[in-house]
Each structure stands twice: as structure tokens, then as C-alpha cells.
Amino acid sequence: MSTGSPVGSHRVVSPAGALPQAADRLDPDPRIADDEVRIRVERLNLDAASYRQLHTAHGGDGDAIRADVRDIIERRGKMHNPVTGSGGMLIGTVDAVGPRSPLGLKVGQKVATLVSLTLTPLHIDDRLEQWDGRSEQVPTSGHAILFARSIAAVLPDDLPEHLALAVLDVCGAPALVRRVVARRADPATVAVIGAAGKSGSLSLAAARDAGAATVVAVVRDEIEDARLRWAHLADDIVIADATDPLRLARKVDKALDGRGADVTVVCVDVPGCEHGAILSTATGGTIIFFSMATSFSAAALGAEGLAADVEMLIGNGYVPGHAEYALDLIRGNAHLKDLFIDRVGEES
């Protein structure tokens, strides 16, 4: 191939004129353009919302989940769940680098892609036979293509690969939380909804790191409550159903002495959490939506209908320096690291 489009539009099979993320199908031809990079894929990490949808749709049947994911990749030339609209990311080894690639990668480097699988040309050659369909992390063999405007991080030597993959999958969350909390004039109160998950626990640590006055973790049950109390990542922990807006708001208000949070972070991988987040946020506060299960129309219209003067941000997964910051949080907090190991150890 000659030099391609830096955003990968030359890889779009259909529809004509679409960018890779919005495309129905991509071309994962292993021959690279002058500004592309080919990765030998070793493991995929499905995003939480996508895996939950697949697990629910197939009643937890691992064989059926595996068959569905394999069909999506083979049919679309990428891992782009048509129900959730989300994908995940991957790790692998740099296999070939075009002479005009600006990514600075070298053949033989082990890397994690920091762009979504929904826009990454992907081919698998093992029919996912190494995966039992029962975890978000998918060992596999194949290749993927990075464009000139893609992002990738060289995997660190001091962390296990499956742990680094889990951290890098959600590294945009803590970086944006740090930015939003740190820019407020006074120390902020922060509520993280879905705090026991990967992005949630990192967001708790980032809020603390940014100087939050109070950090409240919202979890779904006693098991998650016990896990976070052991990790000491929050000042208070609230057990609440994030899809029950009135009860959620009452519990968050109580934890914050009668007022909503200055910053509310939504990391729940199920739909229907928008209104509860709005009601849990103080006037003039900020809501950061990180979940791919979020309905942004429900959030916008709900805030309007509730006459809520709140700023709402979409966590787009990219903040400059986000990968190293997330890894440094893990390195610097033994409890957070153990929490991640406990979670991904079952998925490795």
C-alpha cells in the first residue's frame, strides 16, 4: 500500500465516506501503508459494557459468547459490538512499521493500543479457541492495524501484562477526573458511581490525588462495599442501585451532609444511570460519564427536565499523559494494585 489516510479512512469498506469508528466494515489487510503499523495480536480486552451485554444476551454461555465475538470480528473486520457500539482494546507485539509512521514504535516492542477496537482493523486466525468466553480478556492470535493518528503505549516491564492491559483499558478515566477536580477553585466533593470497577477505583484514587475534600464511593452490594473498605480508597461508601435515581441521590446527599457532589463520576456499565447522577450533583457541579452504556440524550434531556445547572462531560478515553498516570497510580498505591490483581487475576 502507499501512504494512507492518517485517520484510516482508506480502510473503510462500507459505507463510503465514513470514518473507521462509524464504518460497518473495515479492511484488515495485513499489508500496511507507509504510515501504518501492524501489531501481532496476543490478547483483546473487551470493554465492560460490551462484555456484560454479550454475557446477558447468551445467559453466560461461554461458547455462545465466543461464537458471537468471533462472528462480529469476521463480519466487521473489527471488534465493534453492534448493540452497545463499543469494543475495547488489545495488546500485542509490533510486527511491522511503515517508514512514514509517526507513532515512534519499533518492531518487537510489546504494546497496548489506546484506541478503541471499534476503529481498529482486526483479523483473528485462531477462531478464539484459546478463550472460554467467560472473561473480558480474550487470548487470541491475529493482527491489527494502527493508523498515523492512532495511539499505543509500550507495556511496562514492572507489571504483569494482563494487569497492565486492564489498567490501560480505562486509563482515560483517572486522568480526566484529576483534571476536573484539580481545576476547581475549592477542594471538591466527589462521588464515583460504580466505584468498585476498574475505571471507578482508578477514579477514586485520582480524586484523592487531585486533592478532593471528600470522596464517596457508590457500589451495588455488600461484596463491593467490603472490597473497597479494605482498599481504603474512599472516605465513605454508599450501597445503592445506580438506576434508582431518587434513592441514589438521597444516599449521596446524606453522605455529603445534605448536598450533592461537586463532581460526579459515572462508571456503571449498565444503562439507566443518567438521572441518578444528575440528582446526585450539586448546582454548578460537573458530571463525567465514562460508561459506554450511557444514553447521552437521556442525560441531556433529563438535566433539562430537572432544571439542573450541571456541566456534563463525555469521557472520551484520551487525555495527554493518561497511560503513564494510570500506571503510576497503580504503582504508588498497594491497595489499588491489589484490588486490580484480585479482579483481573480471575480473567488472566
Rank of each mutant, 00 (worst) to 15 (best):
N81D: 08
H55G: 01
D257S: 15
P20L: 02
A152W: 03
R66K: 09
G104C: 12
G98I: 08
A64N: 14
F147Y: 13
S116D: 13
L306R: 10
E274M: 09
A205N: 01
M79H: 15
W131P: 04
L301E: 13
L176C: 00
P174C: 14
A195R: 03
L26K: 06
E274L: 01
D27G: 02
V265M: 10
K251P: 03
A212F: 01
W131R: 02
R179T: 13
E222H: 14
E311G: 13
T56C: 09
L279I: 12
A307N: 13
G104K: 06
D29F: 03
D186T: 15
F147N: 02
G258R: 15
R134H: 15
A334H: 03
I223V: 14
M79T: 08
L117E: 05
M312F: 10
P156A: 08
A282R: 12
A175P: 07
A231T: 13
T3N: 02
H10T: 12
A298T: 03
F289E: 09
R134V: 00
R149G: 03
K254D: 13
A166F: 00
E346H: 12
T93K: 06
G85W: 09
S150D: 06
R184D: 12
T214M: 09
I91P: 00
I91L: 08
D29P: 07
V266D: 05
V266M: 07
H335I: 00
D132L: 01
F340D: 08
A144F: 05
D95H: 08
L301N: 05
A152K: 06
S50Q: 10
A18W: 09
V270A: 05
A234M: 01
D253A: 13
G17V: 00
I39W: 06
A303G: 02
L117I: 14
H143F: 05
C171D: 02
G317L: 12
T56L: 12
L155H: 03
V266F: 03
P156T: 05
T118I: 14
L146E: 07
I341W: 04
G88H: 11
P82H: 04
A185V: 02
E224I: 00
I124T: 11
H123P: 01
G87H: 11
L246K: 08
K198F: 08
D309G: 12
V170I: 15
T189L: 04
M312I: 14
L46T: 12
R183E: 07
R227M: 10
L301V: 09
I314R: 06
V12T: 14
T189Q: 02
K337I: 00
V180E: 08
H58A: 06
E36P: 10
A112K: 08
C171V: 15
A18Q: 08
D71W: 07
V238Q: 05
G276V: 05
T84A: 03
